[in-house]
Design a binder for these strands. Structure first.
Lengths: 314, 314
DNA sequence: CTTATTATACTCAACTAGAGCATAATAAGG
DNA sequence: CCTTATTATGCTCTAGTTGAGTATAATAAG
C-alpha cells in the first residue's frame, strides 16, 4: 500500500516491465449450437495486446472483436485478470497481465472469420454436454481415473477430501450434476493431471489424459470460466437474447438455453417462466418450419431491461 | 487479435508504457459495524503497485494486506480491472491498469493500522443503510434532485427513462428497494452530477451534491462495487463467517449480515435458514451478555464448504 | 386417415419464503 | 416476590415458486 507504508516505488523501468493482453471468449449459438471463436486451428482463444489508443479495456476489446468478426458484440463482461508467474513463461523479463472477457454475439461467422474459427465448445469439454444424459466418458473414463487419483493420496483425510470434491464436481456417488461448476471440474482434472495442459506444465507424469481438446497456455481454463459464468448468468439475467435472431420460436429459445447450460429443461415450465416474466412478446407471425404444429414467433421485449429487477431463464 | 490479423505488435517501448495498481476493498464487521480500511484520512482505499516479485496478483495483494494490517485475510475475490483513460489523468504518458479486490477479515484494527483507518462504510454511502428504515436523505434530498435531473432531459423519452432508472435504483414510485444495486445507485448519482466526484471530473456544474463522503479518483466507485458484490454474495455463499469470531450467537451473526446488507431480516426465518442448511453447530457454551435470555453459542461448520452445493444466508 | 412431431393449456404436489404467534429464560426495578 | 423489558427459540399459516405430469391442438408425411 503505497499510501500507508514507507515502501518506495520501484524505478520507472522496473515498474513498466509490464504489458497487458486482452483475451476474448466470444460466444454464439446458431441453431442451438454453442460455439466459441478460436484461432490457430482451434487451439487458442483470440487475444491481442491492450493498446494505448484504446479508450478503455472494454472498448479496446469491443473494437477489435468487431473489426475481426464483422459483427457487433451485444454483451460484454469482464471475466478475470491474472498475472501468474508460471502462466507467462514466454516473457521472463517482464510480466504479462491477461485480462479476459466474455462476449456474446448474435450472428455466426462472416467472410472475415476463416472457416473453422468457430468451434462447438463441447469439443474442449466433452464432459459438459448433458443434453442427452450424462456423457459416457464420465462414467467410463473420468470417474475411474478420479477415484484412482483420490486413492493415490497419502493421507486418509486427503483421500476422502479428493473423493468428495470429485463427486461434488462430477455428480457421482449420489451427488447431483451442477452445470455451473465448469471451472471447478476443469481445475479438478488439471489437479489430477488428467488434462494435457497439466501434463505440459508439470512435465513428467504422462498419465493418460481424458478426452477433450487442449488449448494453448491456460486458454482452456479461461474458456471454462466463460462458460461457467454464462451458465450462471442466464439464470438471472436475460442474456440469452443476445444470441438470438430478432424473432424466434420459444423452442428455439429453449434450445439456445439448453445448448449453453448443457442440460435439457422441462418445455412447459420453460415457457411458463419466460412468459410470466414478460421477457418476450408475440410478433404476430408464425413459423411453419417446426416439423409439427406451427409456432408463434416472439421477439425480446427490450424494455424489460429497465423494467423490474429483471429475471433470467432459470 | 494478433493471432488472426496482420496487425503488427507495437514497439516494446510503447507496449511497456503500462503499469498496474492493486486496489483493496478490505472489509470487517466488528460488532455488526460494517467497516472498510481506508488511507489518507478516509479519502482513499489502500492501493499499491503490482510488483514483479509477486507470484500472482492475488498473492501480491494478500501479502501486503497482511503485512499492513497484521491480520490474515480470509476471503479474497477479484472485483474489476479497468484502464479508462480519463481515470488515470496523472500519468499521461503511459497507462495504469487498476485491479481491484474485495477482501474479508475477521479482526479489526491492530497496532499496525493507524486509528481512523477503518471507517463505517455508510459514511460514504449514507443512502445505503436501511436498517432503521429508508434514510431521510433519500426522500428529502436524493429523490427530489433526481426528479429534477430527469426533468432536465431534452427529450420526453429520456425524461421518462431517467425517472424509471432512478425509481428502480432508489426504490421510489412503488418500486422496491434492492440492496444489491449499490453500484447502479452510485453511478446514477454520478451521472446526475450529484456526487463530488462527478463535479470534479466534469468541472463546471457546481450542483448541490448529496451527502456522503467523497474519495480520490474513482475509489468510491470501487467501494460501491465491493459492497454490491458482497451483498450479492452473502445470499448464496457463506462468506459472512469470514467476518465472525470463532464463536458467536445467532443474533450476532444476523447483525453482521444486516450490517452488510443494510436491511433487517426476520429473526426467526433467519435462524431457520441458517440451521436447516447446517451452516453452524453448537459449541455447547452459552453467552450471558445478551441482555435477555442467554443465547447458545455457535461455530461455523467449515466442512459445509466441501459439502453440498453450499448455500448462503439469503 | 394414421402416425409422428411440435405447440400450448392446465393441474397437482412438494417445497420455499415471508410473516406472525407463543413461550422460555434472563436482568432490572420496584 | 412480582412486574416489565429484552432476547431466545419453537411452531404455524399462507402465498408463491418449482418440478413433473396430463391433455389437447395443429401441422406434415406416409
Amino acid at each position: 500500500m503505497r499510501d500507508t507504508s514507507g515502501v518506495t516505488r520501484e524505478s520507472a523501468a522496473e515498474r513498466h516491465a509490464i504489458s497487458a493482453d486482452l483475451i476474448a471468449v466470444l460466444v454464439a449459438a446458431p441453431n442451438g449450437n454453442p460455439v466459441v471463436l478460436t484461432v490457430k486451428d482451434g487451439s487458442a482463444l483470440p487475444s491481442g495486446p491492450f493498446e494505448l489508443i484504446h479508450r478503455s479495456l472494454q472498448s479496446g476489446l469491443r473494437n477489435w472483436v468487431e473489426q475481426q468478426t464483422g459483427h457487433p458484440v451485444g454483451y460484454i463482461e469482464q471475466l478475470y485478470t491474472f498475472a501468474d508467474r508460471d502462466r507467462s513463461s514466454d516473457e521472463p523479463a517482464g510480466r504479462v497481465i491477461s485480462i479476459s472477457y466474455l462476449g456474446l454475439t448474435r450472428e455466426e461467422p462472416s467472410h472475415r472469420t476463416p472457416p473453422g474459427s468457430w468451434r462447438n465448445w463441447y469439443e474442449f469439454f466433452p464432459w459438459e454436454d448433458h443434453r442427452e444424459g450424462a456423457p459416457e466418458i464420465i462414467g467410463d473414463i473420468i470417474v475411474p481415473r478420479l477415484r484412482q487419483w483420490a486413492d493415490e493420496a497419502e493421507q486418509q483425510d486427503e483421500r476422502q477430501n479428493r473423493l468428495r470434491r470429485a463427486a461434488g464436481a462430477f455428480g457421482f456417488d449420489d451427488r447431483h450434476w451442477n452445470e455451473e461448476m465448469v471451472l471447478q471440474r476443469y481445475e479438478l482434472l488439471y489437479e489430477a493431471g488428467l488434462v494435457e495442459e497439466a501434463v505440459r506444465a508439470r512435465g513428467a507424469k504422462v498419465a493418460a489424459t481424458v478426452p477433450g481438446r487442449a488449448m494453448t497456455g491456460d486458454h482452456r481454463r479461461i474458456l471454462a470460466t466463460g462458460i461457467g459464468r454464462l451458465r450462471t448468468k442466464i439464470k438471472y439475467r436475460p442474456v440469452v437474447f443476445e444470441l438470438m435472431q430478432p424473432s424466434f420460436t420459444l423452442l428455439q429459445l429453449q434450445r439456445a438455453v439448453e445448448a449453453l447450460a448443457g442440460v435439457t429443461v422441462h418445455k412447459q415450465n420453460f415457457r411458463r417462466l419466460i412468459e410470466q416474466q414478460d421477457l418476450v412478446e408475440e410478433t404476430g407471425e408464425m413459423s411453419a418450419d417446426t416439423g409439427g404444429r406451427p409456432a408463434k414467433l416472439f421477439r425480446f421485449r427490450h424494455s424489460v431491461l429497465d423494467d423490474r429487477p429483471a429475471a433470467g431463464t432459470k
